[in-house]
Amino acid sequence: MKAEYNFIANIIEKNSTVLDVGCDDGTLMEFLRKNKNVNIRGIEISKEKVQICIAKGLTVIEGNAELDLKQFPKNSFDYVVLGQTLQAFINPEIVIKELLRVGKKAIVTIPNFGNWKVRLDLLFKGTMPITSSLPHEWYNTPNIHMCTIKDFVRFSETINFKIVKSLALINKNISNISKSNIFVKNLFGELGIFLIENK
């Protein structure tokens, strides 16, 4: 189980309805169902992963978040979760808008490209960074729109959504991101976790 799942679970209120976009093998879904008693659905693009979810008794539809979120009416879910996949979409802006249409709130996690390891990699090696959480080469990475924690905060200003809560994951510990500490969190954070809603 990924380190951030506990923190995502902490954000989500009990007995709410949740859509996990890109639910992978359903680990988070199972965790939330068990600990938060949520009514949870998933969308997953990989047939194999969908099969794994079905075997776990999870309600999942095979689909692509960029194309298939539009079938859900406005405010279908209390929360929509997008875990570490925003950077893989062709148009993250549309995806964010869709998340906030389908969900009353959205929880978005991003691998932080502003992390010092990433910065050092590029600085010293002069090649595109490869780390344990970003293991791909530049030519085969699915992550075509990497961003930093700072980028995401600026993104919220440009496309006009509200960040209700922002957390940084550093060495399995979680801490709040604020205006005053964002430089540090952006340098050491491995992952940014954002609870967002429409303004």
């Binding site: 047939k47 099969q51 079905i54 999942v60 689909g63 079938q71 009416p73 279908s76």
Partner: peptide
């Protein structure tokens, strides 16, 4: 059919089998 069900918040799973 999946879309019609999701539009009313019904409980629906879907997979296309290879």
């Amino acid at each position: 059919i999946v879309i019609a069900l999701n539009a009313i918040g019904a409980n629906v799973g879907f997979v296309e089998i290879e």
